[in-house]
C-alpha cells in the first residue's frame, strides 16, 4: 500500500465506522484530488459525505469548523499547504481557539490535510513547508507521517482526536510504500519513533527527512559512523522525552527538515534541548533545513536550496568533528 492509498484507506475506514466523518475539499469528488487520495470515495459514500467544494479556501475551512461545532467530523483537503494562507482566520482565530475561548463547551474534531514540500517543480506558491506556523498556535496539533504505515495510523488517530489536527502530507511520499508495522509501533499522536538505533549522533527529522536520514545512515556506515534516526511523526506536541533519551545516549544532535531553517521546527527543538539537555550535549546543535529563499522553479536551483542526504551527511560529520 502506498502513502496515498494508506491515507485513503484510513479515510474510508473512519467513514465506515462513524457516519459523522465527512470529507470536504476542492476537486476531491470525481477528480479525487490532485494526488488521487480521495479517488473513488465519492462513488462509495455519496455527495452527502464527500463534499466537493468550490474554490473558496476561507469558506472551506470556515464551514468545516462550523460543521465541527455542530457535531460533524470534517476531514478537509487543502490541496497545497500554500493555500492554507487563504484560510488562516478559520484555522488560527477560530478553530484553534474554540475549545479554550468557549470554556470547553465546544470541541473541534476537524482534520486539515495539506500537502507540503518541493521537488516536483511547481515554484514558490506550491512547495512551502509551513508546519512551524501551525505548531506555533496553541490549540492545534500538527502531524507529518513519513511512511504509509504511519500515514494510516496517524490519520485514524487524527480523526478520532477532538482537536483540530493539521495533517501534513509530503508530496514526494505519496507513491512510496512501507511494510505494515506491528501493534506496539503503531503511530499515536505525540509519540515519535526510533527508525534506526545508533550511538554516535541523533538525527531528529520528519516527513521527507526520514528518507534522507536513512540514506545518510547507509553512506555513513561505510565510514564507521553509527547514527540514530528519530522520526517525530507529530510536530506539535513533539516527543521531547524520546529525543532527550536519544541525546543522553549520543550527546550530539542534528535536526533536519525540508522547511526553511530559520524560526522553524528545528529552531524550537534546538532551543529546548539547549535548555533541558544542556549538560548532555558534547557539540553544538546543528539544524539543517532549506535556505532562506522561496522554492525556485528551475529544478537545479530548487534542489540546490533544499536539504538532501548529501547535505545531511556533511552536517553530521561536522558535528562529529567538534572536539
Amino acid at each position: 500500500m502506498t502513502y496515498g492509498e494508506a491515507i485513503r484507506a484510513a479515510l474510508r475506514d473512519a467513514m465506515c465506522s462513524d457516519d459523522h466523518v465527512i470529507l470536504m475539499g476542492e476537486d476531491i469528488g470525481v477528480a479525487g484530488g490532485p494526488f488521487g487520495v480521495t479517488s473513488g470515495l465519492l462513488g462509495e459514500f455519496g455527495d452527502q459525505r464527500v463534499l466537493d467544494f468550490p474554490v473558496s479556501e476561507a469558506a472551506l475551512v470556515g464551514t468545516a469548523y462550523g460543521a465541527a461545532l455542530c457535531g460533524y467530523k470534517p476531514v478537509v483537503e487543502i490541496m497545497f499547504m500554500d493555500f492554507a494562507t487563504l484560510a488562516m482566520d478559520a484555522i488560527v482565530n477560530q478553530a484553534a481557539k474554540a475549545h479554550f475561548m468557549f470554556g470547553g463547551q465546544f470541541s473541534v474534531p476537524m482534520v486539515l490535510r495539506m500537502a507540503h514540500g518541493g521537488d516536483i517543480h511547481l515554484g514558490a506558491q506550491h512547495a512551502q513547508c509551513l508546519e512551524a506556523w501551525f505548531a506555533h498556535i496553541p490549540g492545534l496539533i500538527v502531524v507529518c507521517p513519513s511512511d504509509a504505515a504511519d500515514a494510516y495510523d496517524l490519520m485514524r488517530a487524527a480523526i478520532e482526536n477532538p482537536n483540530p489536527v493539521v495533517f501534513v502530507e509530503n508530496k514526494t511520499l505519496y507513491r512510496t510504500t512501507s511494510a505494515p508495522r506491528n501493534a506496539e509501533n503503531k503511530a499515536e499522536l505525540g509519540r515519535g519513533r526510533i527508525v534506526l538505533s545508533g550511538n554516535d549522533i541523533s538525527v531528529v527529522t520528519y516527513g521527507a527527512g526520514v528518507q534522507w536520514a536513512k540514506d545518510s545512515a547507509a553512506n555513513l556506515a561505510v565510514d564507521g559512523i553509527d547514527i540514530e534516526i528519530i522520526d517525530l511523526r507529530t510536530i506539535q506536541p513533539w516527543d521531547e522525552a524520546l529525543v532527550l533519551r536519544s541525546l543522553r545516549k549520543t550527546h550530539r544532535i542534528v535536526i533536519c527538515h525540508e522547511a526553511v531553517t530559520g524560526f522553524g521546527v528545528g529552531a524550537e527543538i534546538a532551543a529546548r534541548l539547549a535548555d533541558v539537555g544542556f549538560s548532555d550535549l558534547r557539540a553544538p546543535i546543528r539544524r539543517l533545513g532549506a535556505d532562506h529563499m522561496p522554492a525556485a522553479y528551475s529544478p537545479k536551483l530548487e534542489s540546490h536550496s533544499r536539504p538532501d542526504s548529501e547535505k545531511l551527511c556533511r552536517a553530521i560529520k561536522e558535528v562529529l568533528s567538534y572536539a
Partner: peptide
C-alpha cells in the same frame, strides 16, 4: 462561515 457550516450540518 460558521453559520454556513452549521447550516450544512442542519442540512445533513
Amino acid at each position: 462561515p460558521i453559520a454556513a457550516g452549521s447550516a450544512l450540518a442542519h442540512k445533513l
